[in-house]
């Protein structure tokens, strides 16, 4: 398992997330929401215990998640390797309690469970080390 990098690396991670955020904005402008979501999920969860990094990455993922209009279309171009990490962010979204976020997360959650099975939910719930 990779060692958790601590505080001095947090700045580097934040810079990387900011860079990712700009890339996502440009992808969204080009109407490529799935590409944006993939970009947001890449390198997640950030290998750190630093809550600031995790929150920063969640903001980026949230931005891409909310831009998804066609959930079925999204799954036709999203590779299975993203399923586990996407599930973790869906649960983070549901934990915010924000109405539009929860609506969107539940819509995706239904489809994701059909695609990836209960095993995907179990992997998300049992993993207490790689939290998002």
């Amino acid at each position: 398992m990779a060692e958790h990098v601590e505080a001095d690396n947090a700045e580097a991670i934040i810079t990387r997330i900011e860079h990712k955020s700009r890339k996502i904005e440009s992808l969204l402008k080009q109407y490529k929401p799935v590409e944006a979501l993939k970009t947001a999920l890449e390198g997640a969860p950030p290998k750190t215990r630093d809550e600031r990094c995790k929150s920063a990455n969640w903001i980026v993922v949230h931005r891409a998640l909310m831009a998804i209009k066609d959930v079925d279309g999204m799954f036709s171009s999203l590779d299975p390797e993203y399923y586990d990490i996407l599930m973790k962010y869906l649960y983070r979204g549901l934990s915010t309690g924000d109405r539009p976020t929860c609506d969107q997360c539940l819509r995706i959650h239904e489809k994701l469970t059909q695609k990836a099975g209960l095993g995907c939910i179990l992997r998300c719930l049992t993993d207490t080390i790689n939290t998002v």
Binding site: G117, L118, G119, L122
Partner: peptide, 17 residues
Amino acid sequence: DIGPSPSAQTVAFRDLP
């Protein structure tokens, strides 16, 4: 290759543990 440098494969499946 159990020993100093084992090689591992992980299979994730879609159903209950």
